[in-house]
Amino acid sequence: MTLEQLMFYGLGAVGIGSGLLVVTRRNPVMSALSLVLNFFCLAGLYLTLNAQFIAVIQIIVYAGAIMVLFLFVIMLLNLRDERALSDRLSARKIIGAGLAFGLLLQVLYILMSAADGFPQKDEALAVSTGTVEVIGVQLFTTFLFPFEITSLLLTAAIVGAVLLAKKKLD
C-alpha cells in the first residue's frame, strides 16, 4: 500500500467515524467538535487530490469561522443533552430510515454496476487545476460573472441580517 492510499483510507475511516459521532453524541458541543474533526479529514482528502486551495479554505471557512459561531451559539444557549432517540421513535421515523437505507442500496448498486467503475485520478490535471493561481485566473476570467453575482448575493444576505437584527432591537 502506498503512502497516498494509506492517507486515503486513514482519513476516510476517521472522517466516517467522526461523521457518525456527529449524529450519535447527545451533547451538542461534542457533536460540533466531531464535525470539526470531520472537516479536517475532508481537508486532508482534498490535499491528497492536490487541491491545496480548497483544503485550506475548507479549514479557514468551515472549521475556523462557521463552526466557531456554532459553538458560540451552543455555549450561549447552554443547551442540555438531547434525549435518547428511542424516547421518541415514531412510525414516521422508522419509515424514513428504511427509505434512506433503500436509497443507499440503490446508489451502491449503480456505482458497482457502472462499466468502468470510479474515474481514475489524473495526476497532471490535478496539479494544474488545484493551485491558487489557476483558481484565481479562472475566477477572474471564465467565471467572472458568477463570481460577482455570488458576491452580490452575499452582500444582500448581510444587509438582510443587519435589518433583521435591528428590527428586534427597536
Binding site: 491545496q52 486551495f53 485550506v56 479554505i57 479549514i59 479557514i60 472549521a63 475556523g64 469561522a65 466557531v68 493551485t131 491558487v132
Partner: peptide, 14 residues
C-alpha cells in the same frame, strides 16, 4: 507550502 499564508490564517483560526 504553496499556500503558506492561508495555512497560517487557518491555524490561527484553530
Amino acid at each position: 507550502v504553496n499556500v503558506g499564508i492561508l495555512y497560517i490564517l487557518a491555524m490561527t483560526g484553530m
